[in-house]
């Protein structure tokens, strides 16, 4: 009898009733099944409690090494991944583009192979090119977690958003979720549309046509140009960050005009359901896409999103590096 079998027997329960496991990497929501998404959400739900303990640390990933490779600046996602790894007792090293050798002309593959030679268990990467996480996963044996690749996907954001919505609303069936802003350049929007659709919610996308991808209907969501139409009867209103550029550009004449047309104000929020909640992936531009009174108001779940982000990332790191050995046959 192997230790594994003995261990499973001793707890006299099956480790996972339905045998759901994650894939080797987490590069996109598109690659996840609904069961896998729910496994992450369920696990994340339980991990929230760890952050409320007197000693906010469990030994689950002791001896595991996590490298955060951030080729794009990001304070909150990087910090969230760092704390998530540390609360699981993993050794966490973050490398940002300014300190990495990428600036010396090294390719992504070279950088990754150098890090790989130090045998990390998980590589978390944020990169400005769509598909770079898939690229890394193809060339590295460590588990790769996509922390945002260009305008492609930001799966951990979608998962923390889903957990936040589930806590507020109980389930996803029949929920109307409006996502408003720069859809064309938003990995958050893409991952959320896929994730929420898989979970059974109806997603509505709204924004100026200049910031809506051509063929946006391929994303499987309802598309609106009018903000008012988009948030009518919504259960959840998710506002996206608008890139503020000086002097306007071809997509947006000005942030003032954007706020007038698409900013989430209390008056606009009144068009949504009475118990509608407000979300924002951060960082917010107050007075550009969202009024402070809404961002800080009673229906805002923005801080819950941050808390859940930590729990969901702990769950993902744990499921990829701690549990989920894929080579041991299931025991009953």
């Amino acid at each position: 009898m192997t230790d594994a079998v003995a261990a499973a027997r001793e707890t006299s329960e099956s480790s996972a009733d339905d045998g759901v496991t994650l894939n080797d990497d987490l590069t996109s929501i598109a690659d996840l099944t609904r069961d896998q998404i729910e496994l992450i959400l369920d696990t994340g739900d339980h991990f929230r409690e760890i952050s409320e303990r007197p000693i906010k640390k469990v030994p689950a990933l002791r001896g595991k090494t996590i490298v955060n490779l951030f080729f794009e600046p990001s304070t909150r996602t990087r910090t969230s991944f760092e704390i998530a790894g540390k609360r699981l007792s993993a050794d966490v090293q973050s490398i940002s583009a300014s300190t990495s050798s990428v600036v010396k002309g090294e390719t992504l593959l070279d950088t990754a192979q150098n890090i790989e030679a130090m045998a990390p268990d998980i590589l978390v990467m944020r990169h400005k090119s769509a598909g770079s996480a898939d690229f890394l996963a193809r060339h590295c044996s460590a588990a790769v977690v996509n922390a945002g690749d260009g305008a492609h996907e930001h799966p951990t954001q979608a998962l923390l958003d889903a957990l936040t919505i589930r806590q507020a609303k109980g389930s996803f069936e029949g929920l109307r979720v409006a996502i408003v802003g720069d859809i064309a350049h938003s990995r958050v929007a893409r991952s959320n549309v896929i994730c929420l659709s898989k979970l059974g919610a109806d997603v509505v996308l709204a924004g100026p046509p200049t910031l809506m991808p051509m063929h946006a209907n391929a994303l499987g969501a309802e598309i609106h140009t009018s903000m008012d139409h988009a948030i009518a009867d919504a259960d959840v209103v998710m506002m996206l960050r608008i890139q503020v550029e000086r002097g306007g550009n071809l997509n947006l004449p000005s942030t003032q005009e954007y706020f007038r047309l698409y900013g989430l104000t209390e008056e606009r929020l009144a068009l949504a359901k009475d118990d509608a909640v407000v979300m924002h992936p951060g960082p917010m531009n107050r007075g550009v896409e969202i009024a402070s009174s809404v961002a800080d108001g009673p229906r805002s779940l923005i801080m819950n999103q941050v808390t859940n982000g930590l729990a969901v990332r702990m769950a993902i790191l744990f499921l990829l590096a701690g549990g989920g050995s894929r080579n041991v046959e299931a025991t009953s």
Partner: peptide, 11 residues
């Protein structure tokens, strides 16, 4: 023995 437990352990 986390890594030896079959499937994803349910936490």
């Amino acid at each position: 023995d986390l890594s030896q437990v079959a499937a994803s352990p349910v936490v």
